[in-house]
């Protein structure tokens, strides 16, 4: 490796190293402790969007060529299956419309406003997932141009999926409930006992701080308690799959499975309520 101007290190190099490290540390602390870097992150994220689009190309090409190779029989079978699904779904839709009307009448009687106003919902589409296999982050096709803001709760047809982590002009990143950084205050639907659900970084959730004096069992459904003011209460979050007690511990060790199909859902619902803070969500 020839280089005619090879030189040894000078004090300028040392100072540059110290300055770069100091600046990195300052940025890390500001980003971790405050919301000041959110705007810069949004701008940088928008700037590198073409780069990410380029990175997605090989994956998209492979997907498209796979699709092109799908044979006719498979397509016919799929079409038949979809026709059947349309019939079933339209029947279910009619039933759910009746239930909605009944619900609205009951709510009016009780004088309680709808918890999730239909006019404040937006449908987004999952377009990508995080390149890091140990983070549970997906990207959706809605950004600041659609009035998406950090901290907005995201649901699928089954339950809570996560929360908007960062937004750029066209797209947003959603931190899923199963991410290790995600903590959601919940209550057990059957008993009303409160706890905090935390992702395990894979596909499951752990229910924390539920005292062993509380009544909980497999199959119990956990829903948002609404105590943090971030999520409306009553959104299903997870279903308990395993309850263990640990010797010496005053809390149950509870594993739960998210009710949202976080691995397979493509369409998501964004709850467009008032601006929400995201202090507890750190990448």
């Amino acid at each position: 490796m020839p280089s005619p101007q090879a030189r040894s290190l000078t004090s300028y190099d040392h100072w540059q190293f110290v300055a770069a490290c100091a600046l990195s540390l300052i940025l890390m602390v500001i980003d971790e402790q405050t919301q000041l870097m959110m705007q810069s992150r949004m701008v940088l994220s928008t700037l590198i969007q073409p780069l990410e689009w380029l990175a997605r190309l090989p994956e998209n090409w492979i997907g498209q060529s796979n699709q092109a190779l799908t044979d006719r029989a498979t397509l016919t079978a799929e079409a038949d299956k979809l026709r059947l699904q349309v019939l079933l779904l339209s029947q279910q839709l009619q039933a759910s419309e009746q239930i909605n009307q009944e619900n609205d009448r009951l709510r009016m009687l009780l004088g309680v406003a709808s918890r999730v106003n239909q006019s404040k919902l937006m449908v987004g589409l999952i377009v990508d997932h995080s390149p890091d296999p140990f983070r549970q982050i997906v990207r959706i096709n809605k950004g600041t141009k659609d009035n998406i803001r950090n901290g907005m709760p995201v649901m699928d047809a089954h339950g809570l999926m996560g929360q908007v982590l960062s937004v750029n002009f066209n797209e947003s990143d959603v931190l899923l409930v199963s991410d290790i950084a995600m903590k959601i205050p919940v209550r057990v639907v059957r008993t009303g006992a409160r706890g905090i659900v935390q992702g395990d970084g894979n596909t499951e959730l752990n229910l924390k701080f539920l005292p062993t004096t509380s009544n909980i069992r497999e199959g119990d459904v956990l829903e948002t308690s609404g105590l943090d003011g971030r999520y409306p209460s009553g959104i299903p979050v997870a279903e308990v799959v395993n309850v263990k007690s640990q010797a010496g511990s005053v809390f149950w060790q509870v594993s739960a499975q998210p009710v949202a199909k976080i691995g397979s859902s493509r369409e998501v619902l964004l709850l467009m309520g008032k601006p929400l803070a995201v202090e507890s969500v750190t990448p």
């Binding site: 770069a20 990195s24 540390l25 390149p131």
Partner: peptide, 16 residues
């Protein structure tokens, strides 16, 4: 920015 790590984290790692 690409990996959603805290700003400055990988900058520090690469400098080190």
């Amino acid at each position: 920015v690409l990996y959603h790590t805290g700003l400055g984290t990988y900058a520090l790692i690469y400098c080190l």
